[in-house]
Design a protein around this nucleic acid. Structure first.
Lengths: 136, 136
DNA sequence: ATTCTATATTCCTATTTAGGAATATAGTCA
DNA sequence: TGACTATATTCCTAAATAGGAATATAGAAT
């Protein structure tokens, strides 16, 4: 992956927030929606942008698509992700995102219904299944 | 300066090359033209782009415009510039740019004609003036 | 005053980008 | 089967970007 392409992936705030989260753990689209509070299309398109450039990988887990940072990363990407994490410390938005993620992860072993919102979901998924796609 | 804006400045190859050079020393436009081998408009426009976003400063030295990285830089910018310098090590183009810059700097105390190209220039500037705008 | 030099700006065009609305798709459940 | 859920894609529009050609400008030299 080219250095310029890395910065192209970095030069949008939504994508930066996504990457900041992915640096912590693989996540599925609904998590991004919840944490970032942005519409589904927007999230989905930025994920596509990152996918097309090989920045992230996807894996299907039933209905959920789990995104993760691509496994084998060029050293420049690694350095820049590290740098991003340092830079982001001081920024309220990014920090809040990470906090929200931590909250979700704490509920990681609870039934899916603990995260997914509706009563219908609760009926559908019961208590058995855990949020496996939240675990790294 | 916003983090996203930093990456916007970084997400074009020509601008990256310019910034890589400026991390070494302030330079004037003709140096960029020579080192990058790109047309004047292109250089000038990218410099304008960086200027408008407060990434670089300009100072006039007679006919020459000397560009430098903006003096007081946000910590995120500082970190990313450092990261850029690390990343760039492995890339042929950037390395070659730095090499060319070093060559020019070595001739820093020679008359301007040593750098500026034509015989006409040589006539015009004689041997007296040194490339002060190359000194940091 | 005129010419020349270094650089900037304007005008143009093609391409990329961001984002929303609507729709499609693939998998799950009843 | 048909309804529902999570996510992706298509179609649209507005804005940003990149770059070239031509021209403008400010200062220096003659």
């Amino acid at each position: 992956m080219d250095l310029v392409q890395i910065y192209q992936c970095f030069c949008d705030r939504t994508r930066l927030r996504i990457l900041n989260l992915l640096a912590q753990s693989p996540l599925c689209v609904c998590h991004f929606q919840t944490i970032l509070g942005e519409p589904q299309v927007k999230i989905s398109k930025h994920l596509a942008y990152l996918r097309e450039r090989g920045m992230v990988n996807v894996e299907r887990d039933q209905n959920w698509m789990t995104y993760s940072l691509s496994r084998k990363r060029a050293p420049e990407l690694e350095m820049n992700l590290k740098c991003l994490q340092d830079c982001v410390q001081s920024d309220t938005v990014f920090a809040r995102d990470l906090k929200k993620l931590a909250t979700i992860q704490k509920n990681c072993c609870e039934p899916r219904t603990a995260f997914h919102k509706s009563a219908r979901d609760r009926r559908r998924y019961g208590k058995a299944k855990s949020l496996v796609h939240l675990r790294s």
